[in-house]
Amino acid sequence: MVSLRPSAVDAPDARALLEEYFALRAAIFPGGAYRTVFPSPETFVEPAGVFVVLDDDEGRPVGCGGIRRIADGPHGTRDEVKHLFVRDGGRGQGWGRAILEELERRARERGAAELVLDTHHTLEAAGGLYARSGFTSIEPYNDNSNATRWYARPLTPQ
């Protein structure tokens, strides 16, 4: 059974996942212009944000993602999804959705009214996950040079 746990973004297992994620993105990014920016550890520490690692049924870290508080938007307080990643061997098993659902749950607990994220159009599986999870396309809310699509999802208290 897989499990999700909070983690420091600079913990060795989280760092290894992010290094793999950034390397994969850089290898396939159109024009080779992917800009890698490792997050500052305080970005994903409450109250600024949270970072989670997904461990497979053997306890190996296989995925990660985080949320961080950004400037309020038209619907109120916003958390932004960052660095949602599942290793190749774990894809297609619903683990990306599990991470995203956990981040949504935590965003609600933190009082966020909306989740936003950016992605690149070449990440088709990610775009599909976001659409199936209720995210809709919005105008750009940042100037991320790695992004070509921006999404939002209102959060209702549960």
Rank of each mutant, 00 (worst) to 15 (best):
M1H: 11
M1V: 12
S3F: 08
S3H: 11
S3L: 11
S3D: 08
S3C: 12
P6H: 09
P6M: 10
A8Q: 09
D13I: 07
D13V: 13
D13C: 11
A14M: 09
R15W: 15
A16L: 12
A16Y: 10
L17S: 08
L17V: 12
L18V: 06
E20V: 13
F22M: 12
A27C: 04
I28N: 06
F29E: 08
P30I: 09
P30V: 09
G31F: 04
G32F: 06
G32W: 06
A33Q: 13
A33N: 13
A33H: 13
Y34R: 07
T36Y: 02
T36H: 04
V37C: 10
F38S: 05
P39V: 10
P39Q: 09
S40K: 15
P41T: 10
F44H: 15
E46C: 04
E46M: 10
E46Y: 04
P47F: 02
P47D: 03
G49S: 07
G49R: 06
G49V: 06
V50H: 07
V52F: 14
L54F: 05
D57C: 08
G59A: 11
G63C: 10
G65W: 03
G65F: 07
I67Y: 01
I67P: 01
R69N: 02
G73I: 05
G73C: 06
P74N: 03
P74Y: 00
G76L: 03
G76F: 03
T77N: 02
T77I: 07
R78F: 00
K82R: 14
H83Y: 12
F85C: 05
V86D: 04
V86C: 06
D88F: 09
G92V: 13
G94R: 02
W95V: 08
R97Y: 01
R97K: 15
R97H: 09
A98Q: 14
I99D: 00
E102Y: 00
L103I: 07
R105Q: 10
R105E: 10
R105W: 04
R108D: 03
R110D: 11
G111I: 05
G111K: 05
G111W: 04
G111Q: 05
A113N: 08
A113W: 00
A113E: 10
A113R: 12
V116I: 15
L117D: 02
T119A: 14
H120I: 05
H121P: 00
H121Y: 09
T122K: 09
L123A: 04
L123V: 04
A126T: 01
A126W: 01
G127Q: 14
Y130G: 11
A131N: 02
A131Q: 14
R132F: 00
R132Y: 02
S133W: 02
S133A: 15
S133Y: 01
F135C: 04
I138Y: 00
E139K: 13
E139F: 04
E139T: 13
P140I: 06
P140W: 05
P140Q: 09
N142M: 05
N142Q: 06
D143E: 15
N144F: 03
N144T: 01
S145Y: 00
A147D: 08
T148Y: 03
R149A: 11
Y151L: 15
A152P: 02
R153F: 02
R153Q: 13
P154Y: 00
Q158I: 06
Q158F: 06
